[in-house]
Measured scan of single mutants.
Amino acid sequence: MSIQHFRVALIPFFAAFCLPVFAHPETLVKVKDAEDQLGARVGYIELDLNSGKILESFRPEERFPMMSTFKVLLCGAVLSRVDAGQEQLGRRIHYSQNDLVEYSPVTEKHLTDGMTVRELCSAAITMSDNTAANLLLTTIGGPKELTAFLHNMGDHVTRLDRWEPELNEAIPNDERDTTMPAAMATTLRKLLTGELLTLASRQQLIDWMEADKVAGPLLRSALPAGWFIADKSGAGERGSRGIIAALGPDGKPSRIVVIYTTGSQATMDERNRQIAEIGASLIKHW
């Protein structure tokens, strides 16, 4: 067993022997301040990774656009098919120029040779490549099948209805392509620590998230040296922004954090800054 596999296998073990965790309302004060600064709703939840206990939450059962955070769930569904012998990570998928959609920095470079399922998941999570996500959605049967996968996990809230990039439209009061912070946090925890996926697939999923290259201005910008984070960000229309993450000190994750916002007129930089400040408060009061 590799060191990384050992780390993920012992996530519940280490967490069980940690000192009790206590909620700190100071972080919620910052979440509410972010709402004021952005002029928009902000949803927040913080779960203990081992027990699933909610440590703090704000608007945990209000719907927010998922945006690209759905790509972690998508690759979880792909990995479940791999575990069941219905898919192979090494299978190569070929596609054409007509398949390319807006923001496809990886797939646009491989029109000639195609990409493997493993490479597509890596591109979808680490670079948020939209064509990679659409190609992977095709392998599982489309958005409705991802929703069905989530329902089978016990998540009857999260739903995907459309493809990239239309799913980022974020129309107010439109339930399409949305989740709730509580539902997303619980589902992410199941994917990373539950028995739904094999140990190898859980490790692969967290490795992809740990290698995320496009979430630097968010929670990662607030992390002290030595902290662990595996995350996936999302951005959408109407001032929408979000991030889902597993993080913790001492090089291992111990909490799940989900943050979503929508309806702001603020710039992307300002949305990023507010999420980073929430992260800084979380870490300060850990």
Rank of each mutant, 00 (worst) to 15 (best):
G242K: 00
H24I: 10
G154F: 04
G154N: 07
G154Y: 05
D129R: 00
T186A: 14
F70Q: 05
N98R: 15
A225H: 14
Q4L: 09
A182T: 13
I275L: 10
S104F: 02
S233R: 01
L49N: 04
K109A: 10
N130S: 05
L160S: 11
E62S: 08
D48F: 03
K53C: 08
D155I: 01
G251M: 10
R189K: 14
T139H: 10
R7I: 10
R255F: 02
K30I: 09
T27K: 05
V31G: 02
I244F: 03
Y103F: 09
T112K: 15
G85Y: 08
I283K: 05
Q37H: 12
G234Y: 02
Q88R: 12
L167C: 12
N98V: 11
L146M: 13
E56K: 11
R91Y: 06
E108T: 09
A230Y: 03
T138Y: 13
G85H: 11
A280N: 13
G43L: 00
V42C: 08
K144V: 12
L38M: 11
M115F: 04
L10R: 05
E87G: 05
A182G: 13
I229C: 10
I283H: 05
L160A: 11
A123S: 10
M153V: 14
G239K: 02
L218F: 04
Q88S: 13
P60M: 13
R241I: 03
H110K: 13
K53M: 13
A235K: 02
T139E: 15
G52K: 06
N50T: 14
G239D: 02
A266E: 12
L167W: 01
I140Q: 06
A200T: 12
I11D: 02
K109N: 12
L79I: 05
R162L: 05
D155S: 02
A9Q: 08
Y103R: 03
S57H: 13
L100W: 05
G141D: 06
R220Y: 02
V101A: 10
M180G: 11
M66A: 07
S68W: 00
E108F: 08
V42F: 14
P249T: 07
L136H: 01
N152E: 15
L79A: 03
V8R: 13
G90H: 12
S233H: 01
D161G: 03
A9I: 13
A185T: 03
I243K: 00
G279N: 03
G239A: 04
M268G: 07
T138D: 12
I275W: 02
R91K: 10
L218M: 10
C121H: 00
H285R: 11
L192V: 11
E145N: 15
R176I: 05
G263D: 06
G226M: 07
Y260D: 00
I244E: 01
H156V: 10
T69C: 06
D36Q: 13
R63K: 09
G141S: 07
Q274R: 11
V8I: 13
G242W: 00
I93P: 02
